[in-house]
Write a protein that binds this DNA or RNA. Sequence first.
DNA 1: TCAAGTGTTCGGATTCAATTCGGATCAGCC
DNA 2: GGCTGATCCGAATTGAATCCGAACACTTGA
Lengths: 215, 215
Amino acid sequence: MPRKPQQERAKATVAAIVDAGLIVLAREGPAATTTRRIAEVAGIGVGSLYEYFDNREAIHQAMVDRLGTDAAAAIRPMIPELVRMSVRDASLAVLRRARQFLEQDEGRYLHCIRYMTSLVRGFPLRALQSVLSELATQYLIRHPEMARARNLPAMTYVFINGGIYTVIRHLSEEVPSISFDELAQALADMVAFCMQGSLAPLDAPAAAGGDVRPR
Amino acid sequence: MPRKPQQERAKATVAAIVDAGLIVLAREGPAATTTRRIAEVAGIGVGSLYEYFDNREAIHQAMVDRLGTDAAAAIRPMIPELVRMSVRDASLAVLRRARQFLEQDEGRYLHCIRYMTSLVRGFPLRALQSVLSELATQYLIRHPEMARARNLPAMTYVFINGGIYTVIRHLSEEVPSISFDELAQALADMVAFCMQGSLAPLDAPAAAGGDVRPR
DNA sequence: TCAAGTGTTCGGATTCAATTCGGATCAGCC
DNA sequence: GGCTGATCCGAATTGAATCCGAACACTTGA
C-alpha cells in the first residue's frame, strides 16, 4: 500500500531513495542494487522503502522516470535555438547535448542507463520522448513547408524512438564498432537525407540501386 | 561448473531446458519463469539445470541466443533474392519476414521478445545482426556503385541495430502509435532515402529546410 | 557379461534478497 | 499535555536461486 509523501521529510525520503538507487546502480552495478543496499545508502530502514513504493520494481521505475525527466529538462531549453537550425544541425546538437548529459557527474547516468534497460520492462523514457515530439512539432511550425513530407508521423516515430534506443544501445556496447561521434554524424545525416528524400517530388531522378521512390 | 553435454540425452536435456524457458516465458510471463517452473515444464529436476548452466541468467542468455539464431535462419535463405531487389523492397521483405517469424507458433517468439529485453542485459541478437551484416555485404558486392556512399559503415550500423531494436520496441508497445505496416514502410523508405542522399553528388540541389549536405 | 569409470539426474538443504507487519517515533493540532 | 495520523524502523517471514552428495545410466574393455 504505497502512500503519497505529505510532509517535507517524507518527500526528502522518497528523493533519497531514488538518488540512492541511481548511485548504487552506477557505482556497484545491478547485482548490488538490492533493497537493503538502497536503504543503507539512502540512510533509512528497509521498511521505509515500502511506505512509498509497492516493490523494488516501482523503485526502478522511479529511477528511470527520473533519468527521463532530467534528460528532457536538458533538451527542452534548447528548442528555441534548435528550430532555427537545419534538421541536420539540430539533430547533431541534440545528440551532443544528450551525450554531455549522460557524461556529467562522472558518467553516473551513463552507467545507470546501461543497466536500466534490463531493470524495467520497456524502459520507457516518456518525458524524453515527449520533449522530442515537442521539438518536432515546433520545428514543423517554424518550417511549414516540411509538413509536406510523405509519411511524416511514421518517420518522426522512427527518428525519436529509433534515435533514443540506438544511442542507448551504442552507449551500452562493450566494444562499439563505431565511435559515438560517427554514430551521431550518421544519425544526423540520415535524418537530413530522409527529410530531403521525403520532400523531393515523386518524379525526381532516382539514384543508383533501383527505384527508390516510395510505394 | 557448467559442463558440455556429451551424450545424446544430455543434449536433449539442454534443448528441453531452453524450450521450456521459451514456452513458460511466452505463456506465463517473466514472473513465472522461475528455475522450478522451467525444470517442471522441461520434465527434469531443478538440480539438472545447473549441470549445463551456471545460473538462471545463463539460461536466459541461451534463450535469447536461440531466438537470434532462429531469426537469422529465417532470413539467411532470402539473401540471394534480396540482393536482386531495390534497397527499399529488400528492406521491406526482411521486415515482413521478421514479422512472420515472430508471429509463428501463436506468437510465441513475439511474447518472448517483449520480456527478453529485461531478462538479459544488452539483449544481443548476435546471429541476427550477423546475418544482416552479411546481407549488406552481399548487397554491396552485387551493387558496387553503392559502396561510394559516404559514411556507409556508420549508416549500415544504424540500419541494422536501429532497425532491429526499433522493431522490437514497437512490437513491445502496449498501444503503438503507428501500425507495424506503417513502421515497416517508413523504415524501408528511410533506408532508401538515406542511400539515395548518401550517393547524391555533394553539389546536388538541397531540399527545403536548409543545408542538408553532410559536414 | 560384468565392473570400473564417467556422464547424468535428482531433490532436499542452504542461502539470501524481497516483502510484511506491529510497534516506536515524529509533526501538527486542540 | 494529549491526541491523531504520518513516518520510520528492523526482526521475522517467504520464496526463489543455488549447492551438493547420493543415485542412476551409459560406455568401455576385458
